[in-house]
Write a protein that binds this DNA or RNA. Structure first.
Lengths: 354, 354
DNA sequence: ATGAAAGCGCTAACAG
DNA sequence: CTGTTAGCGCTTTCAT
């Protein structure tokens, strides 16, 4: 009649286990397990007694162990370039809110667009047996595809996808977005439009560039490679890009800039203003994303909006659905970007003063 | 000579376990475990063979199971009001960066300052046996103290503490911060200074209020309760607070506002501008935190800076140290806030036009 | 240098 | 309704 030789818990200092509860309640661990998980038949009387003991002993079932028995840990991994970027923090908020509704927690990982670090995280998350992974990837090669497949975990892409890779993807039509931004400028009368962009190996960048080129072509405006300027990701990068643009002598100078994310746009605006140009009188600027920054910057930034929060919600919904169906999912949700016109764009007044 | 009756892995489709490796390498699972964890003595030859097999079979040790054997999951829980608030996303970035250096992952939880949800998360994290918890709490009652103690997990406070609760705390001297902001305004010549603040039950708010009051008193300026206006947390709340201030007839009207966080300050600036007042000519505004928003808003916001990123790094360092020493830690790190003067504050020109 | 075996805390048949 | 028991995948003595 001694089911197991275990260390006792006289002080309550050590972790209390299901055995402690069983013993204190005078039942078997099976019964305790049943009341905890609300399954099987247990008399109301025992159930209550067990629950009382659980409370008295301040017992918390160990999910980590139950996960051993085939259950999952209800945890998702979320890999993004940088949580301190408002674009991603908004996505994460949506994802976490949605995860919570389903009982999942989310592990955040900042990759800084470093594919090496991305891989490290992926491996580590696999060892921790997360149920699924949401990835805003910096990779686009076929190598990474194999890596992902060998992971054996459902992976969903958010915002950035690996072209041709079949799995859940929730993205925006970046080609269209690039087109909309450029077209807006063209419609205003601009013909000399520069493009500031994140590194072009990132899919979203090349797509937005395509949209930009398409709009130009459609309007019969020549595409000038020297006006396409890839930089980094942040405000400082936009600032430097703008400085460089002003420094280089161009004839004519651009009267408008399409910056392929809001931070680049804001950095550019700061540089332009410091150089004595006013926005939008001297130069129009369009951003991309529609982060909170757009409404705060002066002038408020015209931008191409992505539904960030909803995107976070959508991937998580799709991913969890796939997880619970034991599948890996393959929906490709392409959201429509929307042009939001604010005060950073206007008709070109005159050539940029030199 | 059959160590265990296990399902085989002919297709490689099922998860490969340490047994599969052991069998394929012709050694015992103990040996495999040794090479994985780099402990005990294993001949170079076997080690290499095992490693090769591991690679061939694409094996990933199951951390979740090893955690059963007394190890930890190397995971931290991080509870904050809202990740989409730049103040917190910066802290989280610091925390995650630091966690990664130590090999820890972090689970983010958005509480929205809801103490109920905070508790739910706490309980859930305990069941998942996180190694430690970092908390920017919305609670300040003694009840919560018991809850936290009964958790049996090291808890570290970031930014907001529960007064008198012994544990790791990394905070800023909010009293001093409130004083600095108000003092700055007074030094500029303002005597009619309103205070916009988060709800006063939050410790940081009441401390900043104390600082505000102290500065007033020191300058012999009467404290006017009707000028202390608690609101919510976001930009819209600041906007509404400012609207209300303008609406209420005050004689004299405040010539300056100390908004106890940047978002409130920015909302206030927007409202003031829309009402036709210019900043800082008509009204000076000081914020708190020094988020990225300060440099973007127009005019750039004078604020009281907190070292957000470093605070994230510091808590995690302290917490992990405590975890690894099996202790719970009790350091109270109080950082000095620093006034950052930008262009949203100036000498009062004249009474606010009515 | 290597392996057998005893857990870790819990779930899930399967018997009573 | 309740209890027995066999794992889950890995770590860790303790022999060999």
């Amino acid at each position: 009649m001694k089911p197991r030789e275990r260390q006792k818990n006289p002080t309550g200092s050590e972790k209390v286990t299901i055995y402690d509860i069983a013993e204190a309640a005078g039942v078997s661990i099976a019964t305790v397990s049943k009341v905890i998980n609300n399954r099987g038949r247990v008399s109301e009387q025992t159930r209550e007694r067990v629950l009382r003991i659980i409370r008295e002993l301040n017992y918390a079932p160990n999910r980590i162990t139950s996960a051993l028995g085939g259950k999952s840990m209800y945890t998702l991994g979320l890999l993004i370039p940088d949580i301190s970027n408002p674009f991603y923090s908004e996505i994460v908020r949506g994802a976490e809110d949605c995860g919570r509704k389903w009982g999942y927690n989310v592990l955040i990982c900042n990759t800084d667009n470093d594919t090496r670090r991305e891989m490290d995280y992926l491996l580590s998350l696999r060892e921790k047996r997360v149920d699924g992974i949401i990835l805003a990837t910096a990779s686009n090669t076929d190598t990474r595809r194999e890596d992902l497949e060998s992971l054996g975990i459902p992976v969903a892409f958010i915002s950035r996808e690996i072209p041709g890779f079949e799995s859940i993807r929730v993205i925006v039509d970046n080609f269209r977005g690039g087109y909309l931004a450029t077209r807006h400028l063209i419609d205003l009368g601009h013909r000399n439009i520069a493009l500031f962009t994140e590194p072009l190996n990132i899919v979203t960048s090349s797509e937005r560039l395509r949209g930009y080129a398409e709009a130009l072509q459609e309007a019969g405006i020549p595409y000038r490679p020297e006006w396409v300027r890839p930089g980094g990701f942040g405000v400082e990068s936009g600032y430097r890009l703008a400085e460089a643009l002003l420094r280089d002598s161009h004839d004519p100078m651009p009267t408008a800039v399409f910056a392929a994310n809001d931070q680049l746009a804001i950095g550019a605006i700061q540089a332009f203003k410091e150089a004595g140009h006013s926005i939008p009188e001297d130069i129009s600027v369009v951003g991309f994303d529609n982060t909170i920054l757009c409404t705060i910057v002066d002038p408020p930034l015209t931008t191409v909006a992505q539904p960030m929060y909803d995107m976070g919600v959508k991937v998580v919904n799709l991913l969890i659905e796939a997880i619970q169906n034991e599948g890996s999912g393959s929906e490709r949700i392409v959201l429509e970007p929307k042009l939001v016109v604010r005060r950073s764009t206007a008709k070109p007044k005159s050539p940029l003063p030199r």
